Amino acid sequence: MKTTNTHLKYVEWLSAEDMHSTSKQWLSELSFLKDEQLFFEDLIRKYIFELIAPDQFKKTTKIVEDLGFSRKKTDELIKLVEAHERGLEIMVDGVDQVIEEEVYKNEHKRLIIEVSEFLEGYRKLKETLFNTVKEIAKSDKKRIE
Rank of each mutant, 00 (worst) to 15 (best):
L119P: 05
F32M: 07
I112N: 10
K142I: 09
L33A: 03
L51D: 02
I78N: 00
T60Y: 14
K126L: 07
V98R: 13
I112S: 02
D66Q: 15
S70F: 05
E85H: 12
E135R: 10
E17I: 09
L27D: 05
K126P: 01
K109D: 03
K73T: 06
I113A: 08
I48S: 14
D75C: 01
Y47T: 02
K2S: 14
T22Y: 13
T3M: 14
V115C: 02
Y104R: 02
E127H: 10
K79F: 08
I136Q: 01
K34T: 11
E135I: 00
M19W: 07
V92I: 15
K9P: 00
H7G: 13
Q56L: 03
F40C: 02
L88S: 08
G87P: 01
D96N: 12
D55H: 12
K138Y: 13
F130E: 10
V133T: 09
G87N: 14
F49S: 07
I99E: 15
F49N: 13
K105V: 05
D35S: 10
I44K: 03
I90A: 01
M91W: 10
L111D: 01
E101Q: 15
K72R: 13
H108C: 03
M19F: 05
A16D: 06
N106M: 11
L119C: 07
T22E: 09
L30C: 08
I63V: 09
D96H: 14
S23L: 04
I78S: 02
A137T: 07
L77N: 01
E107I: 11
G68S: 12
H84W: 03
A137Y: 03
Y104H: 07
L33Y: 13
G121A: 11
Q25W: 09
